[in-house]
Simulated assay, not measured.
Amino acid sequence: MMQTMHENAEQVRHVPVLPLETLAALAPRAGGRYLDGTLGMGGHASAVLASAPDIELCGLDRDEDALELAKQRLATFGARTHLFHCRYSGFADALGQLGWSKVDGALLDIGVSSLQLDEAGRGFSFYGDGPLDMRMDQSSGQPSAWHWVNRESFDKLKDCIATLGEEPQAGRIARAIVDARQKDAIDTTAQLANLVEKAYPAAWRAKARRHPATRTFQALRMAVNDELGELQRFLDQILAYLPVGGRLAVITFHSLEDRMVKQAMRHWAEGCRCARHIPRCVCGHQPEVRILHKKPVQAGSDELAVNPRASSAKLRAVEKIAEASGS
């Protein structure tokens, strides 16, 4: 029985979110070139490569462990895969190394991976005690979650937890962290989770559907990895690398990220951008994309039964219909 449970956990760990929906959104075609900016363990990339002959894929990830697993998974596709250890906002450099000026489709699956969550030593989760790290790229030299928890000011901690975690108890939590670290450093995920839980009012703890530390851990992870900045830098660049007919699919797990993607796609899909008081269009701007779904695509009951982590996933996608025009 234990072996079966372990096998099931491993199977879920390697299943990509919204696999059929993502493939339909990208509509990969034979001989096309595709970008997977968040390669993870290669689930989506494998599906794209297997969908049509002669497809080439450029896969990026800043997590070296995930990149190694993806390399093994995609080995069967041989020279059709090109993998790079880098942030997805740096995709232009990777494409430049390949001599690609355009890609027929691009994919992002944003958020923490099962690999990161399940490894206590990475410090992403409070379900297993580990060091306060949370860096997706542990070789980056960037400050870890330990630095945020033990060195940042009360105001910066409060703002981080309130904004990125959308946590209503951000002030109480930040105060508890600052008070506790004056006595001893907060070194582990269990220490931090315990602090946050105690900072929650008893009545809130009793009614909470999730662990009280969920939003705080989410906020710290997003801050450590500059996740909103990373997404914005990508969105600012990607449209220029899609030809007419090229597609972009983005899967988010957080309301702030989903809002950024929705707003960017709506902006690209706009026609005239003149000020409202101007009676006739003078900007000449035409829509650059067609939004493929009126509402974000979400996991159905069958997928959720196998992979509960897909519950907060939202897929948005566009097809490029014209090059930029006007202002």
Rank of each mutant, 00 (worst) to 15 (best):
A79P: 10
H147V: 12
A202T: 10
P287V: 05
G105N: 08
H285L: 02
W204R: 14
S113C: 03
L248Y: 09
Q237N: 03
L49N: 11
R87N: 15
A206F: 03
V103S: 13
V149I: 15
F91R: 01
L107N: 09
V306T: 07
M134L: 02
G326A: 08
E21D: 10
F154D: 00
S51R: 06
V282N: 02
K320I: 03
N225R: 00
G99I: 01
A264K: 07
E257Q: 06
F84R: 10
L231G: 04
T189I: 07
C160T: 14
S327V: 15
G326Q: 13
K314G: 14
Y88W: 13
G141Y: 09
L39Y: 00
S311T: 11
L49H: 08
D109Q: 02
D258S: 04
V282F: 06
M41E: 13
Q138R: 14
R233H: 05
S89Y: 00
V12H: 00
A24V: 02
I161M: 04
S255E: 01
A50Y: 12
L26S: 09
S114I: 02
A162N: 02
K314V: 15
A317H: 01
H277R: 14
R266T: 05
A27Y: 00
H254F: 10
R151E: 15
R29E: 09
R215N: 10
S327T: 14
A145N: 06
P143L: 11
A145M: 05
P28D: 02
E288K: 11
V297Q: 10
K262Q: 06
T214W: 09
L242W: 07
T22Y: 05
L18V: 05
D61T: 08
P201A: 03
G42V: 06
H211P: 08
G165D: 08
L26N: 10
V250Y: 05
S101P: 00
A193T: 11
I186H: 03
G300I: 13
D63Y: 00
T216M: 10
D65V: 15
L235H: 03
V112C: 14
A190G: 01
Q138P: 06
D129Y: 01
A199R: 08
T4F: 09
R135W: 01
I238Y: 15
K295W: 11
G121D: 10
G78N: 07
V250H: 05
Q263E: 00
P279S: 06
L220Y: 11
L107R: 05
R280Y: 03
A269M: 14
T252K: 01
G37M: 02
L23S: 08
A313N: 02
N307H: 07
D63F: 00
S327G: 07
S125Y: 04
V261I: 04
D129E: 15
H85Q: 12
P287A: 07
V196M: 07
Q191G: 05
M222E: 04
S325N: 09
D109R: 00
M134C: 00
N150R: 02
E227C: 01
D258L: 03
Y34T: 03
R316H: 11
E119W: 00
Q298V: 15
L49F: 08
Y200L: 12
M2D: 11
L239V: 14
Y127V: 04
H277N: 07
E152R: 13
D258N: 04
R247E: 03
V244Q: 11
